[in-house]
């Protein structure tokens, strides 16, 4: 069931150093894809004034039928983005507002819901329309339950888990207009500095990756964690890690998958030397296919693996990498 009702999507500029080329933050294509299934996707593009033309074009290429732009000072966090989004809601009276569940996206969605006292559905893995309106699907308690939520009145504000929406909207011709935003003047936090994560390679970002190779304590050392990287590169996958591997200093904490790290739901999750404590499984068990390699046949990760291999990862992984290369 589709409709022509406007569905707003919040597309923020990716946080970046001052000299970096402007780009939309992760989740933009997914939010527009989800919006296109519910109604007419209208993008609210928020970023530095001089970046807006490029960002608006990017939004249209991802399927925004209309683009509303609002300039903010990227050094001021908080209220200004909510001001812009509130202005867009007042102008468009949308059926729903879809926001990527990124760090900045979820902060903005929280502020908007609080300001409008509007229903908020967080970390949704799908949105759809039923007879009574728009509903959001959630995967809760580490994927143990599926829950559907809906608004009783007002637009439903939804944050979408990164990587959860597969549908993509068709590119549109940009129809761009500037939003008129009345600044609330509420106090903000100030950004003093920004340092980009150094991209060691062309590897995809963990949170939105379709394939992830994760390493655990079984790798034994920071040097040997390179095995995980080799396999990830052979598969075109992102790198993840268990908390044990992070605590042991093998990799940066930003790569931690699990209940208190990043929750992921990729097409493929390969767990190497990860026993699979419940806190880890909670963050990855919604992956479509799970492969586990560990020397302990009793490791709980095998309970949820589609293919589990008991053995020495230091011989299995190199052989797998060779086999993948040979197939190419």
């Amino acid at each position: 069931m589709t409709s022509n009702e406007p569905i707003l999507t919040l597309l923020l500029a990716a946080p970046a150093a001052a000299d970096a080329a402007p780009a939309l933050a992760d989740g933009a294509a997914e939010a527009l894809g989800a919006a296109a299934q519910l109604g007419t996707p209208v993008a609210v593009v928020v970023g530095a004034a001089d970046a807006l033309p490029q960002l608006a074009e990017a939004a249209a290429s991802l399927g925004a039928a209309r683009v509303l732009t609002a300039a903010v000072d990227p050094a001021q966090l908080g209220a200004p983005v909510a001001d812009a989004l509130a202005a867009a809601v007042a102008q468009e009276a949308p059926a729903a507002v879809l926001v990527p569940h990124s760090i900045e996206g979820s902060d903005a969605a929280g502020r908007l819901a609080a300001r409008l006292r509007a229903p908020l559905a967080v970390d949704a893995v799908a949105v759809e329309r039923d007879e009574e309106g728009i509903v959001a699907q959630h995967s809760v308690y580490g994927g143990g339950y599926e829950v559907t939520s809906a608004a009783t009145y007002g637009p439903l504000i939804v944050t979408l888990r990164l990587g959860a929406i597969d549908h993509r909207a068709e590119a549109a011709t940009p129809e761009v207009s500037a939003l008129e935003v009345a600044a609330s003047g509420r106090p903000t936090a100030s950004v003093e500095g920004f340092e980009s994560v150094v991209q060691a390679s062309e590897r995809p970002d963990l949170r939105s990756a379709k394939k992830i190779v994760s390493g655990g304590r079984g790798l034994g050392s920071k040097e040997q964690f390179a095995l995980v990287e080799e396999l990830a590169d052979a598969l075109g996958a992102a790198i993840g890690a268990s908390r044990a591997a992070v605590d042991a200093g093998y990799v940066d904490q930003s790569l931690q998958v699990g209940q208190t790290g990043t929750s992921v739901s990729p097409d493929l999750y390969v767990a190497i030397g990860i026993s699979g404590a419940i806190q880890h499984r909670a963050g990855m068990q919604t992956a479509k296919t799970i492969i586990a390699i560990d020397k302990d046949a009793n490791a709980p990760i095998f309970e949820i693996a589609d293919l589990g291999v008991v053995g020495d990862l230091f011989t299995i992984v190199p052989q797998l990498v060779q086999a993948l290369k040979a197939r190419k």
């Binding site: 598969l235 291999v309 008991v310 053995g311 011989t315 797998l320």
Partner: peptide
């Protein structure tokens, strides 16, 4: 749980075929 195998020296090949 899916299939659990014990490495017999060809597990790497087996995973590649599965993928």
């Amino acid at each position: 749980a899916g299939e659990i195998i014990t490495d017999d020296g060809t597990a790497g090949e087996r995973i590649a075929a599965f993928l």
